[in-house]
Amino acid sequence: MTVEEILEKLEALGNEKLRLQNKKHGADDNQFGVKMGDIRTLAKPIKADNELAKALWKTGNMEARLVAILVTNPKKLPPAELEEMVQSGRIPQIADWLNSYIVKNHPAKESFREKWMNSKNTWAARAGWSLTSGRIAREPEGLDIPALLNRIESEMAKAAPEVQWTMNSALAQIGIYFPAHRKRAIAIGEKLGIYRDYPTSKDCTSPFAPIWINEMSKRLGKA
C-alpha cells in the first residue's frame, strides 16, 4: 500500500468521539480517531518496510505514525533516524509504541539509554528512563541502583509529566526487584507523592510507587 492509500483507510476508520478523547490525552488535530485494534489490523498484512514507514512518519498524522512503528524493522533503522523519531514523538501513545516496538529492540538501545536519560528533550528523556526501567527488571547487571535512586529523588519532582511517568516506573521496579533498596524506594515515593491520588480502577494497580511496589512484590513472591 502507498502512503495515500493508508491515509484513506485510516480516515475511513476514524471516529469523532475517539478523536476528541485522544485530544484529551495529548493528541493534536492531526489524527482521525482510529481504534488501536484497527491500526494493528491495517498494519498486519504490510511487510516490514522502513521506507514506507519513513514516509508515513513524515505525514505527522498520529495513526499513520503508529502504522509506521508497526512496519519498521528496528535492526535496519539508522540510529540517527531513530533518535529523530524519538525526539519528535509528541504524543504519549506514539512514544509508548515507539519504545515498545522499536527502541527496546534497536541494536544501539544501550548507548541511547545513557544519552537520553540526560537529554533536555522531553520525549528522549522519557525513552531513556523507559529503557532504564526495563533494564532494572530484566537486565540489572552493571546498573548503579543507589545512584539511580539519588537521581529520581532529586529530579523527578521537577521533571516534565511525560518523563515523570517513566522515572516513576524505574522507581517502582527498583522497589520490586531489589529488596535491599525497597525501603528507600518506598520512602522516596512517599516523599514525592507523585500519583498518590491518581484515579485507578478496581482491577488495576495504582501507579503511586509505594502501593505499586508493595502489591507487585507480594504478587511476584518478592515481599
Rank of each mutant, 00 (worst) to 15 (best):
Glu5Phe: 05
Arg19Gln: 05
Asn22Ala: 15
Lys23Met: 08
Ala27Lys: 10
Asp29Glu: 09
Val34Lys: 04
Ala43Phe: 10
Pro45Gln: 00
Asn50His: 02
Leu52Arg: 10
Leu52Lys: 09
Ala53His: 00
Lys54Leu: 11
Ala55Arg: 14
Gly60Glu: 03
Met62Val: 15
Val67Ile: 07
Thr72His: 02
Asn73Met: 11
Pro79Trp: 02
Glu83Pro: 09
Gln87Ser: 14
Ser88Glu: 13
Gly89Trp: 00
Ile91Gln: 02
Ile91Gly: 02
Ile91Asn: 05
Ile94Trp: 07
Asn99Ile: 08
Tyr101Lys: 04
Val103Cys: 00
Lys104Asn: 06
His106Trp: 02
Pro107Asp: 00
Lys109Asn: 00
Glu114Arg: 10
Met117Val: 07
Asn121Glu: 01
Arg126His: 06
Gly128Arg: 06
Trp129Cys: 09
Trp129Asn: 11
Thr132Trp: 11
Pro140Val: 05
Ala147Trp: 07
Ala147Lys: 13
Ala147Ser: 04
Leu148Gln: 04
Glu155Phe: 06
Ala157Phe: 02
Lys158Met: 11
Trp165Glu: 10
Met167Asp: 01
Met167Cys: 01
Gly175Arg: 12
Pro179Gln: 08
Pro179Lys: 06
His181Ser: 14
Lys183Gly: 12
Lys183Met: 12
Gly189Leu: 04
Arg196Glu: 06
Arg196Met: 03
Arg196Asn: 02
Thr200Arg: 00
Thr200Ala: 05
Thr200Pro: 08
Ser201Trp: 09
Lys202Cys: 09
Asp203Met: 08
Cys204Tyr: 15
Ala209Tyr: 06
Asn214Asp: 13
Glu215Gly: 07
